[in-house]
């Protein structure tokens, strides 16, 4: 398991290659990359600042990964999340899951993302033509996390 919080960009291909290197049991790797959009809630986003709670962030993500590992037959999970100043088209988050078969990898990857959205202590502040604003949490994210039906 690897969890990294960093301001630098990441290379998904390199991370995937590193995760499955030398493990011939791996038959599937699912990856998700979250990206900054140019529009959010009807406003143009010039850039955003991502803040987090050092210490708790890593702990919360590690807990989510543990839950994924207890629920699906997977080998490894890695999460890279960026913080600091980001602009549209920049990568924000990477989740990679390896398993023997695709079903477990797909589901565990989506689970980790859904839980990260509602449990990991990150906050986005956007710069728009109307001024700076803190992004508000979405009810749809709680619904997405809720459908996995596990206790937080």
């Amino acid at each position: 398991m690897a969890v990294r919080v960093q301001s630098e960009d990441f290379d998904a291909g390199r991370e995937i290659a590193a995760m499955r290197a030398g493990n011939a049991q791996v038959g599937a790797v699912a990856a998700f990359v979250g990206v900054v959009r140019e529009m959010n809630d009807g406003s143009a986003v010039a850039d955003m600042e991502l803040e987090h709670y050092p210490g708790m962030t890593e702990k919360a993500i590690a807990k989510i990964i543990d839950q994924a590992k207890s629920r699906w037959n997977i080998f490894d999970v890695m999460v890279v999340h960026r913080v600091g100043r980001l602009k549209p088209t920049d990568q924000i988050v990477l989740v990679v899951v390896s398993s023997a078969h695709r079903g477990d990898a797909f589901e565990a990857c989506e689970f980790v993302m859904d839980y990260l959205k509602t449990r990991a202590p990150f906050w986005k502040k956007e710069q728009t033509p109307q001024g700076a604003r803190w992004v508000e949490s979405r009810a749809s994210d709680d619904v997405a996390a809720g459908r996995w039906n596990v206790k937080a």
Binding site: G34, L50, H52, Y53, M56, H81, I92, V93, M113, L116, K117, T118, R119, A120, P121, F122, W123, K124, W134, V135, E136, S137
Partner: peptide, 10 residues
């Protein structure tokens, strides 16, 4: 003890 708004990462 930390206080914060609902999280908005990912």
């Amino acid at each position: 003890i930390a206080f914060f708004p609902p999280v908005t990462g990912g």
